[in-house]
Computed example of a mutant assay.
Amino acid sequence: METVTIRAKGISVSVDCSVGHLADLAIETEERTLRPLHHAPWLDEPPESLPPGLPDGVTRLSGDFLCAPFSAADVEAAPLHGWTANSAWDLVEEAAIDAGRRARFRLRRTVMGATVEKILTLRDGHPFLYQEHAFIGGAGAIPVAHHAMTVMREGGTLSFSPKRLAATPDTALEPDPTRGRSLLAYPACTPDLTEFPAADGSTIDLTDYCMDRRHEDFVTLVEADHPGPGWTAVARRAERDVVLVLKDPATLPVTMLWISNGGRDYAPWSGRHRGVIGIEDGRTAIGHAASIGDNWLKREGIATTFELAEGRRVAIRQVIGATDAAGDPPDTVTVETGQLRLGWQGGTTRELPFADGFLKGVEN
């Protein structure tokens, strides 16, 4: 494994170049260093201790990675979540920029004939990683998603930009009780994230991450119409911080939540993958073939692929960061000139330095 670390004032990011996953994100505050990203508990174990045949993206599971396609690669042959999450990336350029640092990586393989690049930018004093993935050339339709993951020792609470609805797929992640368990009803759909139908007929609050419920679940949140940005905030109780993931809703219209809290009993998960939530912003259905075919999201008017073409560059941008904050997550997140403003009920606000044009594709 080759790890490359990029640093700016007060922030650093490390990339596991064997699979392109973000291995670590470290954000310095006045009193401590925040580490918002998850890494799998088996990463420090000998490879021979893991079950044979696992995709490299599972054996090296950490932080965030690009899925292209998201889930099953059943159009162009590749492992789960595509070669972008399972094969090597090369650092092709790293340079200082005005008040920061930027690195560009390139996937050794192509996806649907396209060259894929990962561009990571850190700004001095900004508690955010600004990342862009670009598909250059190629042909055909590709569903894409990020796979950001954070982890909580004692659970936490979540808040979101306005969502139209939340829905589970037809089949639970763990339908076999000898292998694991899921809590949510499959399929189910509701506009109220605090009362999602459960398998036992009750309801579950998706904004409350409870550590005492061992389960593996997956739910798709569809963005409502609003001026943006799209955002997810996770207030981690024990860590006393708020993890922030931001997107442009016009580019990435869905946010998929992977709730992984000891719900898989088989290796390498073995009931120990706990307190993890994936915040998976994307333009996708579940699987490549499903995304390019008829699917429920398309029937809702939601795009589920990007179109690749020779001479075309398709860019996807996302932001991950964190800030000190004990208690609840913010109720509002707004972009202003040079800053991100977090707002809580009661009038409390916090302003963080932010590249306000980044998500819209403007260089700043």
Rank of each mutant, 00 (worst) to 15 (best):
A73P: 10
A103M: 01
F105Q: 06
E48M: 10
D98Y: 15
D56Q: 12
R102V: 15
F70G: 09
P55I: 07
R101L: 08
D44H: 03
S49T: 13
L80Q: 11
W83N: 12
A85W: 04
A88G: 05
L66T: 03
G82W: 07
R60I: 00
T59K: 10
S71H: 11
T59Q: 08
G57I: 01
S49A: 12
A72K: 14
A99D: 15
C67T: 01
D98V: 14
R102E: 14
P47L: 11
P69V: 05
W83R: 14
S87C: 06
A72R: 14
E94K: 10
T110W: 08
P69T: 07
A96F: 08
A77N: 11
S62Q: 04
W83S: 11
A88N: 02
A95V: 13
D90Y: 05
L43R: 08
A68E: 04
L107R: 10
G57R: 00
L107E: 12
A103T: 00
A95Y: 15
P69Q: 06
A72Y: 12
V75G: 11
H81M: 05
S71N: 14
W42L: 01
R104K: 12
G53V: 06
A68Y: 04
D64K: 09
R109Q: 13
D98T: 15
V75N: 11
A73D: 09
A77L: 12
P52S: 09
L91S: 00
L66E: 03
D56H: 11
E94L: 08
E48A: 13
A103S: 03
R60E: 01
P51R: 03
G100Q: 09
A78I: 12
T110A: 13
S62L: 00
A96K: 14
L91N: 00
T84A: 15
R109M: 12
E45I: 00
P46Y: 01
G57F: 01
L107P: 13
R60M: 01
E94C: 10
R60H: 05
T110N: 10
N86W: 06
G53T: 05
V75Y: 10
P79W: 13
G63S: 10
G53R: 04
D64A: 09
L61H: 02
F105R: 06
P52M: 05
L107F: 13
H81G: 04
W89P: 00
R106W: 02
F65Q: 07
P47Y: 06
G57E: 01
N86L: 06
E45D: 03
